[in-house]
Design a protein around this nucleic acid. Structure first.
Lengths: 221, 221
DNA sequence: ATTACTAAAAGACGAGTAA
DNA sequence: TTTACTCGTCTTTTAGTAA
């Protein structure tokens, strides 16, 4: 767990632009901005590097730092708290996308009782064994990326017949007012432009969807 | 200046609901949530009170705390930093709505040279003399309400033939990637659930739209 | 059960220094 | 100039205690 001091340091680096491109800073500079000695700033940077939240390149005139994905995620999570503290008028978002065909393996996983019972507990419905794959628009993908908030549900993994099934993340949503859930496998890194949605019923049948059809996934933050 | 530790404490209280109503907490509880001892939590609360960031009422079973205006402002400022860090994350919004018929008077106004030349200057196109009326969904209406930003364009009013034509507000948007503009008459109060859109061409013809058709208005904030 | 004080323990900070 | 180490100092935390 990151300390609030290190978080503040990370945030300052992000503020200086270290999210998109490496920025050149020195311990002295950073310490001055945050009100610490260069020694402390140096230690903070090292801590953050060890924690995997940023990458560094030491140079004669200072160091080049760039936040890692993990580091950005830490800030996103911290930011997400404010969405709960200051619930804005714009708490409902619509992700636009088109129906695509997946590999069909989703059905197998959703059908596993250990998963489905947890989905029922958290989402309030027993999911139909299958997923609707949706290819998001660029605008939708941006929204998808920002879903790592406190509303995210973690469905615990388990072992079955000597096989290990990993944790799965799930974010509640609706499609045409039908309560659904965006399922994000925890293991491999999933492309952000693609979402798999589970629902109480078969969405393809329910709305006569075929590949290429436009759908709108509503999420609340 | 508030320390990052006290800020984290203040934020946690806000997260627990201490912004709108007093919440009942104990030092032990708060310390547990933030990862330190009840003594430290107690001290933090006292510090925050002394700093004027929250009000307390000590009770036998704990204390009732409520953030002051100053305390809320501190959090708002901290939140604002994230707007700088993640500037264009969720900058594109899609308002969903259905095509409706207006009174047809929009065409008259848009056709006036004094208006249309200003639209051309600000939006980059000479508008087709007519407006597409769109009845927004509740989610879309929320987005519409939040459009009063720096991107809003003011088209100046004028006098013509002894008649006064008022200022008109305009917000750039796109429909199916076609650059458009949401027109908001300055005078009377317009219902937020309805938008009038101008475009370089006749949108109804362009996309074969009839009343009741769904359209998606993209705006950037 | 609380809050809050005091004093001991822990940990963070920064000066000095080397590379 | 840097970074990053050590180590003495000092702040912060927590245990113990009282109200």
């Amino acid at each position: 767990m990151i300390s609030v001091d290190n978080l503040a340091c990370l945030k300052q680096i992000a503020f200086l632009g270290g999210i998109s491109d490496p920025i050149l800073i020195s311990s002295q500079m950073l310490g001055e901005e945050l009100g610490f000695s260069p020694q402390t700033a140096s230690r903070r940077l090292k801590d953050l590097e060890v924690a995997g939240l940023l990458e560094r390149r030491l140079l004669p005139q200072g160091q080049e730092v760039l936040l890692t994905e993990a580091g950005i995620q830490v800030l996103r999570d911290d930011h997400a708290v404010y969405h709960r503290i200051f619930p804005s008028e714009l708490d409902e978002w619509v992700m636009q996308g088109t129906v695509t065909s997946g590999l069909g393996e989703g059905a197998y996983y959703i059908g596993l009782e250990s998963y489905s019972s947890q989905f029922q507990k958290h989402l309030g419905f027993l999911p139909y064994p299958g997923t609707l794959n949706i290819k998001l628009t660029p605008a939708g993908t941006k929204i998808r990326k920002s879903l790592h908030s406190s509303r995210m549900i973690t469905v615990s993994g388990f072992e079955l017949g000597g096989r290990t099934f990993g944790d799965v993340l799930c974010y509640p949503c609706t499609i045409e007012h039908v309560p659904c859930g965006i399922v994000i496998p925890g293991r491999s890194h999933y492309p952000d432009s693609l979402v798999e949605v589970i629902a109480p019923k078969n969405l393809r049948e329910m709305f006569s969807l075929v590949d290429g059809d436009e759908v709108f996934v509503h999420v609340t933050m």
